[in-house]
Simulated scan of single mutants.
Amino acid sequence: MKFCLIYNKNSAGGRKSKFIKKIYDEIKINHEIDLFETTSIIEASEIIKNINKNNYKRLILAGGDGSVSFAINELIKNDIKFEDDFAIGYIPAGTANILQAELGMTKNIKKIAKTLTSNNLSKTNLVKINDRYFVLMAGIGWDAQIVQSIDTKIKKILGKVIFGLKGFEKFLLMKNDKIKVSINNEEILADWILCSNSRYYAGHHKITDTNIFEEKFTTYIFKDLKRMKLLYYIYLIIRYGNLEKSKSVITKNISELKMDGLNKQIPIQIDGDNFGSSNKIIITSSDKKINLLKAA
């Protein structure tokens, strides 16, 4: 079996190089594997385009959650066809690493290598947002403001700390534009929408009972986001692992929702990365699936 390992050196400021190399060496003992260290999406995109041409059966991505999201979208965009046993593997080398929790991965080198060389794979549910797909979550509004305000150079140095600092800044200077949310025949004015395909959010904090392998996603609609309410929401996540006890948060398990910025551009983040802004957003279930390797 032939492996392609792409290491996004921009993740975690490139501090995981030795860790990645040890996993590479472990896999290399019994398998053919090529290691590519990339510093731009252009480099990574070219490698992914040639996955089939080079007969790779495993695409291993070392980086953050966004690295996996990017690769999956590149595979779909280029309409790459692969065999049923093709799978994506993940090495947690980013900031939040929510996917690490979803896949049951540890940071033990031998255990990671064992998972990546196994056949323990499952098809992940992919959710479509406009012309892209996400694996974990999409945030429209408040949390996307935080993601978009972070300088990538500073993120490399400070890691998770910068999310805390910027989150506190946006908490103090909270300013939300209303978003019109349309679900079936219902319309709701909201300050923030969070669509979660993952059990976890903001690190390894449980937020819902779904997971990336189930064919559904949970949508939280925050009608009136204020500082004190946000603190209450954080308490609910830490204490109960969901937001169901809040009367000001609408929870929906639906297959489609539409959002309108009411003539304003709405900031968006998908899988923890900046997805720009748009005044029209459609999120829907999709029939796209891809195999992910997970810990036994």
Rank of each mutant, 00 (worst) to 15 (best):
E83K: 10
I254G: 01
F275S: 15
K114S: 12
F168G: 03
T218I: 13
D85C: 05
S277C: 12
A71N: 04
G104M: 14
F163S: 01
T210Q: 02
S45R: 09
F163W: 05
K180Y: 03
D85A: 06
N73S: 11
K252N: 08
V161E: 02
D65P: 06
F3C: 09
M174P: 02
I109C: 03
K110Q: 07
G272T: 05
I207L: 08
I41S: 03
L293T: 13
S285K: 13
T219P: 05
E74M: 14
I27V: 15
S40F: 03
Y200K: 05
D209I: 10
Y24L: 11
N54T: 01
K288D: 00
I140P: 10
K264I: 08
I268G: 09
G104F: 13
A12R: 09
Q265I: 13
L293K: 10
S17A: 15
M137H: 01
G66R: 06
H31V: 04
D209H: 04
D84Q: 11
I183G: 03
S248G: 12
F70I: 09
K289P: 06
T115H: 07
S182A: 09
I282P: 00
S248A: 13
M137Q: 08
S255F: 11
I33W: 03
T208A: 14
F217H: 07
Q269D: 05
I188M: 10
T251I: 15
F36Q: 05
I281C: 03
E244N: 15
N55T: 06
S45C: 09
I207F: 00
N291L: 07
I60S: 07
E186V: 14
A138C: 13
S45A: 11
L116F: 07
L243C: 08
G241N: 05
D143R: 08
E102Q: 13
G139W: 04
